[in-house]
Structure formats: C-alpha cells, structure tokens
C-alpha cells in the first residue's frame, strides 16, 4: 500500500507544466481560449490524491501564479483556495460521478471561479469584460475528460517506476 502512494514529484511536475502552459505565448486570437490550467490540475490532484493538495498549498500556488503573471497579488490565491475548498468538500461525491457528470461539475467550479474574478474586476472599477471572458471554463470543461485520462496515465507510469 505504501509503495503505491503518489510521489509529490509527479504533482509538482504536472503543476509546473500547467504554469508553463499558462505563461506560454499564444497568438492573440487563441489567447482567449486558454483554459485555467492550474485549476484543472489542482482539481485532478484534489480528487485523486488529496494528501498532496491542501488550502495552504493552493494559496501559495496562487501567489506564485500572481507573481509570474503580473496580476493583482492574491487574485489567483483567492480563486484557487476557494476552488480547492469546494472540491475537498464535495470530493466523496465528485469522485464517483461518471465522466460527463464530473465534467459538468468541473464546469460549475470553473464558472464559479470566473464569477469571483468578475466580482474582483468590478471592485477594481474595471469595465466588464467581453464575451471572451466566459470561454475558458467551456474549453476547460471540454478538455477535462481527456486531461483526466492523460493525468491518470502519467500518474500510473510514475507509480510503477517508484514501486519497481
């Protein structure tokens, strides 16, 4: 049982790729479709291997994202802390949903996140964003089943390597 535990290395590797995907340059036309990679990765690890994710980590990851991305310090920290809290809260149910239902709940989580962001934007006095603002949750939802399978593969491979 102990040999089959997830190593934190896998978690940090996928997290680093998610941050890289957030920062990597995309042409402006594609940029609006960029999903919230870090959130998707955190949802996955929170569901599958809860020992690796907690609110403190989510907060620190969010701060890191704010520093790298140049957004308001604490913005992503708040959004990720709320996200991880919600996933932890409903973890037992979410884990045993069929894939499409799980994708729907991921959509709800990402949408909730956007609403929080919208709230912060309006508090700052920025104008309300255009339609493109609502695209990333949709893209994230469509990606979710495939991302889930991919991450499962990665995790399995890493596990086998550690146990052998």
């Amino acid at each position: 049982m102990i040999a089959r535990r997830d190593r934190p290395g896998t978690f940090y590797l996928t997290l680093a790729s998610a941050i890289a995907l957030t920062l990597v340059y995309l042409p402006p036309a594609l940029d609006v479709f960029r999903p919230y990679w870090v959130a998707l990765i955190l949802i996955y690890w929170c569901l599958e291997s809860q020992a690796l994710v907690n609110l403190g980590k989510a907060f620190i990851i969010g701060l890191l994202l704010d520093l790298l991305g140049g957004s308001l310090l604490g913005l992503h920290a708040l959004s990720l802390v709320i996200l991880v809290y919600l996933v932890t809260r409903f973890r037992a149910r979410l884990r045993f949903f069929p894939p499409w239902q799980q994708a729907l709940s991921v959509f709800a989580l990402l949408l909730n996140d956007r609403i929080i962001l919208l709230w912060i934007i309006s508090l700052r006095g920025d104008p309300l964003p255009s339609f493109g603002f609502w695209l990333p949750p949709i893209v994230g939802t469509l990606l979710w089943p495939w991302l889930f399978l991919l991450l499962d593969r990665v995790r399995g491979a890493m596990r086998r390597r550690t146990s052998s």
Binding site: G56, L78, V81, Y85
Partner: peptide, 20 residues
C-alpha cells in the same frame, strides 16, 4: 476547513487591497 478557508480568503483580499 471552513475556518481555514476564511483565513486564507481574508489574507488574499488584504493582499489584493494592499497591492491595489
């Protein structure tokens, strides 16, 4: 868990306000 959510949330909001 909820208490910790409140704590981190408050911390984040304070940070944002200070940054702003």
């Amino acid at each position: 868990q909820t208490a910790r959510l409140m704590l981190y949330g408050l911390l984040a909001i304070v940070l944002m306000a200070m940054d702003q």
